[in-house]
């Protein structure tokens, strides 16, 4: 039996959600997003995977498929089934969540699958399934929006033909002011929350929910704020995808040089008689031992480069944000 004990000091303090000057409790302005970064291809076993850190949210998505569908009666004769599972880790929230899926997780799984489906050329894979697994490792408000953005990237990483990437973002109502991207405190204490997902190229909304209260005007203001925000996030998404594949291109470009070098080496070394086979094998083994360190050094170089890139991206994105505000 777990006894819930109220934390005394924090609950008594009242959080000022938004000041008269429009500054929110974490210092953001009305239309500021939290820091967002994407990493593509973070898992080895999955066909496609991606990680998003959005403020304090950490969400992992993996895609398996297209693959054979079980149970078979769920198969669609003309297209692939997009099956989505959104789950939260027990330690993702302040009070431990029980590991069994809740009704909330089931609902979100369903709407996420339905929001992803319009972005996929699913008629290419009839009778199969594309499984999208989303694990929220740490939650801090706006997880379903972050989840759909990262799931879409994982689909792209899996090489599944897409019409567009899906971007998500939420707006909210803080004392009749529309603000972007609620965090957990604002979500709980605020007056309304409106998650949205959007296809930036096709210009269609694929997910829209709201709870709390919005006046019609406020609702429209919130919608108008969300579309440009989604386009900003879309840019980050696309850059993350590009950075993974530009890294691979670099690695591939380096490969022929290496090969040529090793061939030269082989030419210089006179072929050894078969009797020395053992020695040769040993030598080869030694060579092998040396190679990994080389590779490792190279990899480190790459990772450093990519780190820099992401830093640059952050800078550019924040710059852009600033420009937009102006």
């Amino acid at each position: 039996m777990i006894i819930s004990v109220k934390k005394m000091s924090k609950d008594k303090e009242e959080v000022v959600l938004i000041t008269k000057d429009g500054i929110r409790h974490d210092g953001r302005k009305k239309d500021d997003l939290r820091d967002i970064s994407f990493h593509v291809g973070v898992l080895d076993r999955a066909d496609g995977s991606a990680l998003i850190t959005w403020g304090r949210n950490k969400i992992l998505a993996a895609v398996y498929g297209p693959r054979e569908l079980h149970p078979k009666h769920m198969a669609l004769p003309d297209r692939a089934l997009i099956r989505c599972e959104y789950r939260m880790a027990t330690f993702s929230v302040p009070d431990r969540k029980s590991p069994a899926p809740k009704r909330r997780e089931r609902e979100i799984s369903k709407i996420l699958a339905e929001a992803l489906e319009p972005s996929v050329f699913n008629y290419l894979y009839p009778r199969s399934v594309i499984d999208v697994y989303i694990n929220v490792l740490q939650a801090d408000g706006g997880t379903r929006c972050a989840a759909i953005a990262v799931a879409s990237l994982a689909l792209a990483d899996a090489g599944i033909p897409l019409k567009d990437l899906v971007v998500g973002c939420a707006a909210g109502n803080l004392y009749d002011q529309a603000v972007l991207d609620l965090d957990d405190v604002e979500d709980k204490e605020g007056q309304g929350d409106m998650p949205l997902a959007y296809l930036p190229h096709i210009d269609e909304i694929v997910l829209l929910q709201s709870d709390g209260v919005f006046s019609p005007d406020l609702y429209k203001t919130a919608l108008d704020m969300l579309i440009p925000a989604c386009k900003k996030i879309y840019k980050l998404q696309r850059d993350a995808l590009k950075s993974k594949y530009s890294q691979i291109t670099e690695e591939v470009a380096d490969a022929p040089e290496k090969e040529a070098k090793s061939k030269e080496k082989a030419k210089k070394e006179p072929a050894k008689p078969a009797k020395d086979g053992k020695k040769e094998a040993k030598k080869k083994a030694d060579d092998k031992k040396e190679k990994p360190s080389e590779k490792e050094a190279k990899k480190r170089k790459f990772s450093k480069k990519s780190d820099k890139k992401t830093d640059d991206e952050k800078k550019s994105s924040t710059k852009k944000e600033k420009d937009d505000k102006k």
Partner: peptide, 17 residues
């Protein structure tokens, strides 16, 4: 508790442990 979430492998399925 250990959760073998389906994210980790094509052989893992969701559901109770």
């Amino acid at each position: 508790t250990v959760e073998l979430v389906p994210i980790a492998s094509p052989d893992f399925e969701s559901g109770p442990p």
